[in-house]
Design a protein around this nucleic acid. Structure first.
Lengths: 139, 139
DNA sequence: GTTACTGCAAACCGTTTGCACTAGA
DNA sequence: TCTAGTGCAAACGGTTTGCAGTAAC
């Protein structure tokens, strides 16, 4: 398993809790989950896990590049498995559902920023808000 | 004063606290401030103001379209005066300073989303992260 | 055997809320 | 006068932290 290698190479230990959290994230590829949701889902496969462990695990995974932190509009942080593909999210302001979209235009923007200013852009954060098809038809 | 008109037209009252908060925001045009910072700055002109009043005032101003809420990467919410001009922010990950940039590319993206999917985009959130000129030369 | 990791509970911090008092209209 | 607005302190909710016990290596 790739996780084991990544953990051990940095002096971390492989624990059932970490494996369980990883499995939950993998099963929910493309669905950003908040720590509470990860906690609930992980409990189903590792009953005794504590919420603090989930927080610590998500932070560690982020450090290792295993997960990405997603900034949705409000409330708590969300995490999703890092598949390597660059994408952003469309968030429905009515039902809260989240869709991915590829084809990020910010690369072009970063280019023009690089030309127009002395600011060096290393990353960005982009989310779109609006109404998903289901909520549109429901109105 | 425009604020008075906007407040009264919605049945709100004009108070010295609200005027003071507005002045602070106007003096810091282009600088997103968090509630704590607004609180500290407003205290300099209206000593007795409470933090809760600042929160309530910022929320009211947002409702009235007087301020915009800015989503920087971490921590608390930030607010800045709404000048009507659409722009986004470049945040220095080293010193935390914030610069504006105009020329939002997301309009094009919203266009292509509209063609490619059934999701209707009504707003978006974009921030760039990197290093400001000062921090670059300091390295 | 050593020490990283865990679960628990308490602490923390930004934000919201209930309430009695104050002041704008 | 009437009721929106205020300051205060307590409550709230997501997150972090200290610690003693547990388990990976």
């Amino acid at each position: 398993m790739d996780l084991s290698r990544r953990l051990r190479s940095r002096g971390h230990r492989v624990t059932p809790q970490r494996k369980a959290v990883l499995e939950v994230l993998q099963e929910n590829e493309g669905v950003p989950l908040d720590p509470e949701a990860v906690f609930e889902l992980t409990r189903e496969r590792h009953a005794g896990i504590g919420l603090a462990t989930v927080y610590r695990t998500l932070e560690l995974f982020r450090d290792l590049g295993v997960v990405l932190r997603v900034h949705l509009h409000e409330g708590s942080q969300h995490y999703e498995i890092n598949t390597g593909g660059h994408h952003h999210h469309m968030v429905c302001v009515s039902c809260g559902s989240v869709d991915e979209f590829d084809g990020c235009v910010v690369d072009d923007l970063e280019e023009s920023i690089r030309e127009d200013s002395d600011f060096v852009v290393t990353s960005h954060c982009l989310s779109l808000f609006g109404y998903c098809p289901a909520c549109l038809t429901a109105r």
